[in-house]
Simulated assay, not measured.
Amino acid sequence: MRRLVIEEAFWNLFPSCVIAVAVARNFDNRWLSRKDEVPSLPERLQAAAARAEERFRDVELAGHAAVAPWREAYKRFGAPKGNRSSIEALLRRVKNGKPLPSINPLVDLYNIVSLDFALPCGGEDLDVSSGDVRLTLARGDELFVPLGSETNEPPLPGEVVYADDGGILCRCWNWREAERTKLTETTRNALLCIEGVDDSFAVSVAKAMEELAEQVRCRLGGEVRTALLRREAPFFDLE
């Protein structure tokens, strides 16, 4: 049986991390089936971006409680300079007034949740991934082709990564997704993750996943199973 496994090397760096995970199966991620929704998901996404822009308008992001712990975490595993957490990148985009593109229903839903809860959210297509999914530290020679690219950009040794038997799914923990396992309109089965660096995020991470799972069930259909992973409970069945 395939699993998500958070390995001991990761826990040695981040012993109090909490990660909410979900497996969503047999959902419909096509725009066509939601064309008459009011408000539409793109409209809901822009509304979430507007809320976040207002909330963070006068905030220095680098020192904010939603961002500063991630900066410290990235320093801890030696992330390349300029590589920032997905939540910092998302908040900077809306804070700077840059349009937030609508990608597909599932990605829009997790971006809405990410903005509303100020937490990193991401997902992978389970039908494209291979073997167990591992949150671990990279060797440095794994295959990684980033989203929108055809060029291999391997991680640094010791970098926090999501990986499977085919290579890296996401570099620098939640910085950059892989092209291979990206969520598309044809995705029917997905792994979703919402991450908190330490226990102080536990309540918001759990609430965010509860909201995301409910939105996926209501809007995309299918079945969703969730769990909250900690050091004492580091596994989640993907089947």
Rank of each mutant, 00 (worst) to 15 (best):
A73L: 08
Y74H: 08
Y74R: 14
R76I: 10
G78Y: 14
G78P: 12
A79N: 07
P80F: 06
P80W: 04
P80Y: 10
K81Q: 13
K81C: 12
K81W: 11
K81M: 09
N83F: 15
R84K: 15
R84Q: 09
S85N: 10
I87H: 04
E88F: 05
E88W: 09
E88H: 03
L90T: 10
L90D: 04
R92V: 03
V94Y: 06
K95V: 08
N96F: 09
N96W: 08
G97N: 03
K98P: 00
P99R: 11
P99Q: 02
P99A: 12
L100H: 05
P101W: 07
I103M: 08
N104T: 14
N104A: 13
L106M: 09
L106I: 02
D108H: 02
D108L: 02
L109Q: 06
Y110N: 06
N111W: 07
V113Q: 03
V113N: 02
S114G: 04
S114Q: 01
A118D: 11
A118W: 00
A118R: 00
L119G: 07
P120K: 00
P120S: 03
P120V: 01
G122N: 15
G122R: 14
E124S: 13
E124T: 14
D125L: 08
L126P: 01
V128F: 05
V128D: 10
V128S: 12
S129G: 04
S129T: 15
S130V: 15
V133Y: 06
R134H: 15
T136H: 03
T136P: 11
L137M: 00
L137R: 06
A138H: 01
G140T: 00
E142T: 11
E142F: 13
F144T: 07
V145L: 04
V145D: 03
P146M: 15
L147Q: 10
G148R: 04
P154C: 09
P157W: 09
P157E: 02
G158N: 06
D165S: 14
D165C: 12
G166N: 15
G167D: 12
G167N: 11
G167H: 14
I168T: 05
C170G: 03
C170F: 07
C170M: 08
C170K: 11
R171K: 07
C172Y: 00
W175T: 07
R176G: 00
A178M: 06
L183T: 01
T186A: 12
T187E: 03
